[in-house]
Amino acid sequence: MKPPKFEYHAPRTVDEALALLGRYGGDAKVLAGGQSLMPLLNFRLARPAALVDLNRIPSLAFIEESGGGVRLGAMTRQRTIEFSPVIAQRVPLLKEATRWVGHLPIRTRGTVGGSIAHADPSAEYPAVLTALEGEVVARGAKGERVIKAADLFQTYLTTNLTPDEILTEVRLPAMAAGTGYALEEFARRHGDFAIIGIAAVVVRDGQRCKTARLATAGAGPVPVRLRAAEEILERDGLGEAAIDAAARKATELVDPDSDIHGSADYRRHLTGVLTKRALVRAMGVARG
């Protein structure tokens, strides 16, 4: 389990990195935290001609509040996010999700940009990005574009980023004070990728639910926004019956695949179970 041969570049700027990607014309791969790419290389399941390592580009690692949201440089480590006061205050759902990403030594290296660009359907960050209706910024030879979460994820391990593009930034709207949130997840072993995960966000107005956001991990080839379930809550409020109805709805909205960790039936069942748990816990956190 040793990687195949490749060339290696550690550019200092995004422009340099883009030039390198251009030079290899799609045969190079970006290396971020390496926590997903390196295992693939060790198994020789990825065979890029070159790696363009983003770890020496300081401009890609930052957390900034701006306008109504938070901007994270793609190379911001999951560990930095875990301990960031800005994240804890402005996007607490992201902090909660981070605790579910592997383990501390994984989060030391793993990055927010890598996690999203990798687009593992069982990963937490794509679900959070989807639930919060965040965006990412991509830069390529032709310039910069902003991609909405809903448009980003194509299928397993595939985004609509082109091979010569770099994801430079993740933008998340700040969660208003009092917003309820929860990330519920089921994995067979602590720290493993989710069999099913549910990210939930609710904004309450008394007994009413102003906004509900639900997104899945592990329930299909991409994170699934459970819009029809959200609508039940936005219409009927956050009472027990509405939550049950939303959870039931959630099971109808997903089309999971089977693998050795769980069948499609079981995953669908879990989608309902965890939707309910996430909503109940999010309600408990919500004020307003």
Binding site: K2, G34, M38, N42, F43, N55, P105, I106, T108
Partner: peptide
């Protein structure tokens, strides 16, 4: 394991724990 799961290779890199089987020496 050389795929990041077992943790046997964990070392400290600049004061923080990390898996040395999924890092390159050049890094």
């Amino acid at each position: 394991c050389e795929h990041g799961i077992c943790g046997a290779c964990t070392i400290m890199v600049n004061g923080e724990s990390a898996r040395s089987c999924i890092m390159l020496a050049v890094q």
